[in-house]
Nucleic acid binder design. Structure first.
Lengths: 117, 117
DNA sequence: GCGCTTTATTCCTTGACAGGAATATAATCG
DNA sequence: CGATTATATTCCTGTCAAGGAATAAAGCGC
């Protein structure tokens, strides 16, 4: 189960936006400030929360600090989600069987092999 | 991308506990109260938040209200997670490749130690 | 209807968190 | 060292959410 700090870190929309930005590529703080439209102090505070949640790492590049996503907590979230995903797959399967109305059916197999556990 | 209410609903540890309880089986409010050790009003308020986030449904059974998980928002979370999971898989894969380098090459070339100052 | 049980809601207080402004720290360069 | 850039931290304030106590509402049995 993920740490509480992980959930509360991701509960904030601005922080999720930062995380989405860092998914594209690592970025220095200035870029994040500009992209999010937040003030620099506020951004730094959000980055601190993300750091303490283990979601991002910092690399120093001259005076700049380049933030990058750390994939580990994502795995934690994924592990937390796993039992619920089973429930979801079950219900999807049942719904699909009952309604049979999916025209662009995505081949709902009983086992979902997309994640290499 | 999941709705903000979904994230804030799951940000609370008590609500995650309730969700975990409901993963096992649907339960009436009284059971949740006892299992979580919260007061009845507090539990009802948490259930309301979960309801508004779409995470649970209610079924009426005499005077009791039986709450059950709704799997749909889980799918939303999973969809949100997907791009990050790719990142995570990539990093796992990179690590695996590094560890899986065919070690039968006894004269493995080390990193060039000269270019660094 | 009346009581009884179960759950929801309101009122209130408290604590946590976000944001802005100003300031401090760190690193680079001359 | 002093100036400059880039980022972090502190202080303050407003907002929002959680928890408890009391109360309301809804459904059931008589």
């Amino acid at each position: 189960m993920p740490d509480a700090t992980l959930w509360s870190a991701l509960a904030d929309p601005h922080r999720r936006a930062i995380v989405a930005l860092l998914l594209q590529r690592p970025r220095p703080v200035g870029e994040i400030v500009e992209a999010c439209g937040l003030s620099q102090p506020s951004t730094s505070k959000h980055l601190k929360v993300l750091r303490e949640a283990g979601l991002v790492r910092v690399r120093q590049d001259a005076q700049r600090r380049v933030y990058a996503l750390d994939p580990a907590p994502i795995a934690e979230l994924d592990a937390w989600l796993a039992p619920y995903r089973e429930l979801w797959n079950r219900s999807l399967d049942a719904l699909g069987r009952r309604l049979d109305e999916t025209p662009d059916d995505t081949s709902h197999a009983p086992e979902e092999p997309t994640t290499k556990d």
